[in-house]
Design a protein around this nucleic acid. Structure first.
Lengths: 201, 201
DNA sequence: GTGCAGAGTTGCAACGAGTGCAGAACTGCA
DNA sequence: TGCAGTTCTGCACTCGTTGCAACTCTGCAC
């Protein structure tokens, strides 16, 4: 069982994410200060930064979990799967799972990514880091078919295609993600279109 | 002929970029303040921000030119070119041109992108904006073959492939600066593999 | 249960990026 | 030469972020 210390830490972390989510939704990102978030979670401002390295990071608390899930999907590939099949299921895994907090966060993130440059920058960095990690494992899974660079290119092409499609689908400022169902729809549409060329192989 | 005001403004802008480049090279990015840059260019600190919106932006002064060049390449496509051909020449155009200052800046940018998160974030944003613009024009050039979303996906796949491969190539300090021909070769090979399904587009 | 070492928390002071404002300096043009 | 519009600049302020030193709490041994 995790120690009291760990449980407490986890609880505080969650409290920070929830407080931040609430405040960002109410007042917006820019009009919420780190001090506000810390106060709402009943924590010293200074302490915020021992949980998250920056204000933006509080928006991506499950990034590591997602990457881990994708990596696990690669490890668990079927014996006959080609690299593309494996990559497909890994990326399906990334967009999976999570409770309602994760859903709220995801919707908020999409909106902020479209409107706040700092958040967009962080989102792209998180994405790029995830890509590299996935590429590493994809290469490990198919050492003969894909050298490291080719794996990087493949994952990049894949993620880039989806991102590029999604960007067009979201850049209409009117219909941002009112409800997360429509958000999911657009994500699916983007993936569908982006991956068409690979599917037909 | 451009007015005195314009010439002066252009000169100041260039002075800022040069001062920043020098200082970043000497002391590093983090240890250089905006006040340092402004002082080196003999300008008030406040005025820096009427030329560049942020400290990072001074590293991407020619971004607009590059995009314009790519767009021009799309407009100037040959009559028989398929979307993929046009995109290839447009992106070749992006990595073209510029004097030595541009070269120095580009090298500095590569280094800082690998080491300073804020710079990486900005670089990715610049790239994404460029992608969207190029996708827009590619769609305009091939309204029947490519809908807007598919154009976004195509451009994204391409840029993503190159970025993904480059990321792997650059994060290993061994195989980096040997010669830029071999780097180009490996890039081409990797993107070739990743984009095979798109080739017929 | 007591006490101690190490981990975690906190306020404080400081630095740098970025912004609004109001006045000074400059340019284009008559 | 003078005026109108633009640009430049210092000032004061907000906010994110960090180093530091004191303080509190938890895990653990005795």
């Amino acid at each position: 069982m995790p120690t009291l210390r760990d449980r407490k830490r986890e609880r505080t972390r969650r409290a920070l994410v929830e407080a931040a989510t609430d405040l960002f939704e109410q007042r917006g990102y820019e009009r919420t200060t780190v001090a506000d978030i810390a106060a709402a979670a009943d924590i010293g401002t200074r302490t915020f930064f021992s949980y998250f390295g920056s204000k933006e990071e509080v928006l991506f608390p499950e990034a590591d979990d997602r990457v881990r899930a994708a990596v696990a999907a690669i490890e668990a590939r079927g014996p006959g799967d080609r690299p593309m099949d494996t990559l497909l299921s890994a990326l399906a895994e990334v967009n999976q799972g999570g409770d309602e907090m994760v859903g709220r966060l995801a919707a908020l993130r999409v909106r902020l990514t479209q409107t706040v440059p700092a958040v967009r920058g962080r989102a792209l960095q998180v994405q790029l880091d995830a890509q590299r990690e996935i590429a590493r494992h994809l290469h490990a899974a198919y050492p003969r078919e894909l050298d490291e660079v080719a794996a990087g290119a493949l994952v990049g092409a894949f993620v880039g295609a989806v991102t590029g499609a999604l960007q067009v689908l979201l850049d209409d400022p009117d219909a941002l993600p009112a409800d997360s169902d429509e958000l999911g729809d657009r994500l699916r549409t983007a993936t569908e279109i982006a991956l068409r060329p690979w599917r037909s192989v």
